[in-house]
Design a protein around this nucleic acid. Structure first.
Lengths: 357, 357
DNA sequence: TCCGTCGTGGGAACCGGTTGCTACCGGCGT
DNA sequence: ACGCCGGTAGCAACCGGTTCCCACGACGGA
């Protein structure tokens, strides 16, 4: 009989006070918990609260100085597995630290990004986390620098998570992982197995994540004194469909290669089925490797060798580092390591001379 | 030289007013946009705004009646592909409709769910969307009913998205999709190919999504006058690892079956590699089907036949329906259809007599 | 020239909370 | 019996906005 009445108007602290026969301040104090209140008063207040099903308005609390802090993260598309893992890490750590979590998808549109950051600043978010690579142009650096400054001047903090750092001095926390290093190690492994012509299925040509991995690909070659054929690096985006399309195209074009390294496991997945469709066996006819180590990589056939990225950890660190940052302290820049996980998709390279795949 | 000074204290509307030499109300009005203000006044206000890099506090606006509405969604784990797609739909539609989006992961803990809903009520969220199946116990119905009521009495609205409906009369919007029907059609297809002993790799035994699919499995059998062996339905959870483990176990136990239907594509993926590891060929030795049609399903080898669920649409509808709901109107209950997409993973069944897989 | 009106801007109340300061109460010591 | 003190509760100011209502100045028409 606790009558949660259908009064469509939420009740205020004054309603509770009136019903309990005390003042609003007393209600506030009972609910606050620390201030000494007699048991009788507390009882009647609590009863009124229960009867009215009252919850204090979080926005009002926030404005008055109490209130749950909020943290925002902005990403391109939650649907990409690596984004999802970062988001998960962010969300977990945020709630562990007692923060609420606002999320926005930009769908890759820079204007949305700007709008969102502005909204988050209006929300007085404790930190705004920008997730995922992007085109690292002067325009990017300037725009982002401006965001960082205005966030900082509002007492908030910008975090770049898996995104290129700004010029020194920008009030920004950067958490990256080693795209180039991971790709270098991975490609070195492929090269060590005897492959000489390895196709690289990259991402968008200006995207930092893609670029980092591409640099690793190149570096691994050069470290062996090899000079990769420019025709062997292709660009698409980080989707399964792009991988599929690029691979078909490469095959149709008669490109010669004995192994393919995809910039992403998703891309690798698409490439793998294109290979299968062409009647090629992996790794017997051609080897394949990915990047990200999403859970599915194990279930591709053959199981995909790839490089593991601690995405969830990345997200967790992003929020922890951002929230621990004290205004005066130096800006942090973390670079997380990656490691390649060898599975079954890369086999030995061809014997003497390259093979026509 | 626009001096975005490092003054760590965000400026208030009064600061802007002072700098522009007008009153706070005037600033509010020029920022509001509608009220007539002379060009000169507007100019100086805007300049002050720019110089101070001022953004109005969204919480204060909200409390005063203006302000961006917010919408919250609560799910178990953003990392599951189907959750991610629903989340994406929710987020897109929410921002399209000018709402901010709060997200919480419960990690499957009911207490978290309660806490979150309470927080969202405090945030005065326009709607709270609970995403994903759960155990449909009397406790669930009562608890959720209570949430619905208290949300409703606060002028907000509870939405159940892919989650079992409550008893009639609860102020709730329900958007479901047809788990049972999809599974029925899928299993009917498997049966039609001549399979008679089909293993079902289900989810948690009390989970509504899992249960719905299991009912479909059963119903498809009965519709053919078949009586499935109870030993053929196994329970785990909706992860790749569960699928892998269950499949190994089934194989180790010497269960007889010629096809396996997994409650989820993730489960199917794990099962597939277990099958491969055991040296079994799909679909030659055993057929396999999944549920969800995640993008990866196409890249499994063989490509997985599965049932497509319009997850993103589900999320979009959830927010649209919730936000369009007017307090007096009847509660809506939508049931979205699914369809099976036939690919390569289920082949013809065995000849006379079951095969030992 | 005088008055009505329109265009503008300011004052103050209000949104729903929190909290510093003050006042009242009863109980205790001497 | 009186004064002091500690424990409680209320008043009012404040957080950062919005908006109702009113006043003031300039302008045009009679």
């Amino acid at each position: 009989m606790t009558r949660k009445s259908g009064d469509a108007s939420r009740s205020t602290i004054r309603d509770v006070a009136a019903r309990a026969g005390v003042s609003a301040s007393t209600v506030s104090r009972v609910l606050g918990g620390v201030y000494p209140v007699s048991a009788a008063t507390r009882g009647s207040v609590m009863r009124a609260v229960r009867e009215l099903d009252y919850v204090a308005d979080a926005r009002a609390k926030a404005i008055a100085g109490a209130g749950t802090p909020t943290l925002a993260f902005v990403l391109e598309d939650i649907t990409g597995p690596s984004f999802a893992y970062m988001a998960h890490g962010v969300e977990r750590e945020a709630t562990r630290l007692g923060h609420l979590c606002l999320v926005c998808s930009t769908e890759g549109d820079v204007r949305h990004e700007l709008e969102f950051v502005e909204m988050m600043r209006a929300q007085r978010a404790a930190a705004v986390i920008l997730v995922g690579g992007t085109a690292d142009t002067p325009a990017y650096r300037e725009r982002t620098r401006r965001m960082a400054d205005s966030l900082a001047s509002a007492g908030s903090r910008l975090v770049l998570c898996g995104r290129p750092p700004l010029d020194p001095g920008a009030p920004v926390t950067v958490i990256e992982y080693d795209n180039e290093g991971g790709a270098h190690t991975l490609v070195a492994h492929v090269l060590a197995r005897g492959h000489r012509r390895v196709l690289f299925l990259g991402g968008r040509a200006d995207h930092t994540t893609a670029l980092g991995r591409e640099r690793g690909y190149l570096a691994a070659h050069r470290a062996r004194g090899l000079d990769p054929d420019p025709a062997l690096v292709l660009h698409g985006d980080f989707t399964r469909d792009a991988g599929h399309r690029l691979m078909r195209q490469a095959l149709a074009d008669g490109l010669e290669f004995s192994a393919v390294v995809a910039a992403t496991d998703m891309v690798a997945a698409g490439a793998l089925t294109a290979l299968h469709e062409a009647g090629l066996k992996v790794p017997d006819d051609v080897s394949l490797a990915g990047y990200d180590d999403i859970p599915f990589a194990r279930d591709l056939h053959p199981a995909l060798t790839t490089v593991h990225v601690p995405y969830e950890e990345l997200g967790r660190l992003a929020v922890r580092t951002a929230l621990e940052h004290t205004p005066g302290a130096p800006d942090e820049h973390l670079l997380l390591g990656t490691h390649v996980v060898v599975r079954d998709s890369v086999g030995p390279g061809p014997g003497p001379g390259p093979v026509t795949a």
